[in-house]
């Protein structure tokens, strides 16, 4: 009896990261990641690569759902359509020009990329960039299936062809 009670308490405390719903984003969600270093030279002692936040919303269903909303509202679908690509590259295939890790995608959205990807940093809050990052990763299949919704309430675009 006592053991099951302890288990219940632990379960309740740990809860479930997927089911966290931060309706008012916490400070930790607004931290920018450490820069993705493109070379070896640093002015001063080398900073550890692993510091800085990775993705506070990894595996979080609410963030993916918000990211889906923002993807449409900020007109990412204008170039990337619903993940299938068009003017911009597809987000559902296996090819990630600038990398598929959360920090890579965050940087892509925040700083922009050559050939047409605008830089959203400073225009939208950092936590929203994290939500978009998580949604884009979900489009690419990197997020747990349990946290990702299989469809939206809108007209569906066809999925991109599977890579060979």
């Amino acid at each position: 009896m006592k053991r099951s009670l302890a288990l219940l308490v632990i379960l309740a405390v740990v809860a479930c990261h997927r089911e966290r719903r931060p309706l008012a984003p916490a400070a930790v969600d607004s931290q920018r990641p450490n820069p993705l270093r493109m070379g070896d030279l640093q002015p001063g002692p080398k900073q550890l690569a692993a510091t800085g936040i990775n993705n506070p919303y990894e595996g979080n269903a609410y963030a993916i759902s918000e990211g889906q909303r923002l993807f449409a509202q900020y007109n990412c679908s204008g170039c990337h359509f619903h993940g299938g690509g068009g003017i911009g590259p597809p987000l559902m295939d296996a090819e990630w020009i600038y990398g598929s890790s959360p920090v890579n995608i965050f940087t892509t959205i925040s700083e922009g990329r050559p050939n047409g990807m605008p830089s959203y940093g400073g225009h939208i809050p950092v936590y929203q960039i994290w939500q978009l990052t998580t949604y884009v990763r979900a489009l690419g299949g990197f997020e747990p299936k349990g946290a990702t919704s299989p469809r939206s309430e809108e007209m569906m675009a066809k999925r991109a062809e599977e890579p060979k």
Binding site: L8, L11, C16, R18, G146, A147, S149, P150, E153
Partner: peptide
């Protein structure tokens, strides 16, 4: 207890209870 309770009411109308507006497993 895992914070994954349903949140859309006991009769759970769509689209609020649908995949887009009720994320997670509730």
């Amino acid at each position: 207890l895992l914070h994954a309770a349903p949140q859309a009411g006991w009769f759970s109308y769509v689209p609020l209870a649908g995949p887009q507006y009720s994320p997670g497993k509730g």
